[in-house]
Structure formats: C-alpha cells, structure tokens
C-alpha cells in the first residue's frame, strides 16, 4: 500500500488520493509552436526511478500535493505543496 504523508492531514492511505501527473511539465504559452504543444500534450519522459508528480488529496483536505516517488519501487521520499521543492533541490539551487 502506498501511503502519502500529507503536510496538512498526516499520513493517509493511498485510496484517499487521486494521481495527477508528472510535476515537471509546464503549460506552453498559447502562441508556442505546434512542435512545443505536441511535446506538451502527447510526449512523456515516463521516468524509471525518482519521479516528481502531483497527487490530489481528494478525500482529505482537497489540496494538490507534490510527491517524489520512485517508479521502480513505489517508495515515496518526499511530499510537499505544489510550490515547494525537496531539500536536496533547494540546496542545489542556493
């Protein structure tokens, strides 16, 4: 069972959450090229390993969360709010 440690509600079971998508994708500008839109709409990194993604705490606080999960093991190493970044990346940036 995947359990997700919601920053608002604490550790809750997976069935309270809905999977969103890869959190590294960002919406192109409306007038971006068709190629850019194709990449955004259809193509995926489909990472094997550490993956940053969105989950919705649908049956809890109804917040969108950012979760770092290993797609090979299901292990969750970090949970934050959408604008947060895991400590390792925050350090790397400063």
């Amino acid at each position: 069972m995947l359990r997700i440690n919601c920053p608002h509600c604490g550790e809750r079971e997976h069935s309270e959450f809905t999977y969103g998508e890869d959190a590294n994708r960002s919406l192109p500008a409306t007038d971006a090229s068709l190629e850019t839109w194709n990449e955004y709409v259809y193509q995926r990194d489909n990472v094997a390993g550490e993956h940053m993604e969105y989950w919705h705490h649908a049956l809890g606080c109804r917040t969108w969360l950012k979760v770092q999960r290993n797609t090979l093991t299901h292990e969750i190493s970090w949970v934050g709010l959408p604008h947060d970044m895991p400590p390792s990346q925050t350090e790397a940036q400063s």
């Binding site: 489909n46 999960r69 090979l72 093991t73 299901h74």
Partner: peptide, 16 residues
C-alpha cells in the same frame, strides 16, 4: 492502478 510505474506489482486499493 493509475499512477505511472515500472514495478511489476500493484497496490491494494485497486485490488479491493
């Protein structure tokens, strides 16, 4: 199960 994964096993909510 609904989340992308390469682990050849699923979780209990879908089981249920």
């Amino acid at each position: 199960d609904g989340y992308n994964t390469y682990a050849q096993r699923g979780n209990l909510p879908v089981f249920e």
